[in-house]
Amino acid sequence: MMNSETIQQIPTDNPDLYAFRVTGEVTGADMEAMAEYMNAAFDTHEKVSMLLLFENYHGSETGAGLDWDSVKSRFRSLSKVDKYAVVGAPDGAARMIDMMDKVIPVDARTFTAGEADAAWRFVGARPA
């Protein structure tokens, strides 16, 4: 299980789904820990799906996600992630995900905070 101060993994009933709750302000250390965790998952699975639930999210610190592991996991996700659901994403991120869904080989969708059940159905799993 991956847990940092702002990113907590949610146990699910599907071993190929990686679900996370994101709260507060994400730090570079949080992003690096999640990237290392997902790179390990990419090493052991042909394909995975991901679900991110943003709750009381306050953004990320400047430079978070620019370390090598984070960059590497983003590139690997293009071939390793089947479905990618984001619940309650900030407006700018939601627009970017919706736009990128049209050009990347990942089935990516955004959901409002009130549509969490629909997001779980989309990725084919439930919290354990």
Rank of each mutant, 00 (worst) to 15 (best):
T12V: 09
F122D: 05
M31R: 05
N56H: 12
S60R: 11
E5R: 14
M34I: 07
A93M: 15
A33Q: 11
V106G: 00
F111H: 02
K83T: 02
G59W: 04
L52Q: 12
F20E: 01
D107R: 13
F122R: 05
E25Q: 15
T44K: 15
G92P: 01
V71H: 04
A89K: 01
A85Q: 00
A116L: 10
K47P: 06
M31H: 09
A94L: 09
F75N: 12
E36T: 13
M1L: 14
A108Q: 06
V106W: 01
F42M: 08
K102Q: 14
A85Y: 04
N14M: 00
Q8P: 04
S60D: 11
A85P: 04
A85I: 02
P15C: 03
T44V: 12
F111A: 02
E5V: 11
V22Q: 03
G59M: 04
S70K: 07
Y37C: 01
I104R: 07
M100F: 14
G88H: 00
G92H: 06
W120H: 04
D67Q: 08
S4W: 02
E61T: 13
V71W: 00
H45I: 02
P11S: 11
I97V: 13
G28A: 09
P127S: 10
D13K: 13
F54C: 04
Y84M: 05
V87T: 04
P127F: 04
M38T: 10
Y37W: 09
F20T: 00
D69P: 14
A119Q: 05
E32C: 08
G114V: 09
A93G: 15
Q9R: 14
D16M: 13
A113Q: 13
T44G: 13
K83V: 05
M34S: 08
T27E: 03
G28N: 13
S70L: 07
R121I: 10
E46A: 12
Y84C: 03
V87C: 05
V22N: 01
A119R: 02
E36S: 08
P127N: 09
S70E: 02
S77N: 12
A116W: 00
A94D: 07
F122C: 05
D13F: 00
A113I: 09
P11C: 02
D13L: 12
A41R: 11
Y84S: 01
G114F: 03
P127Y: 06
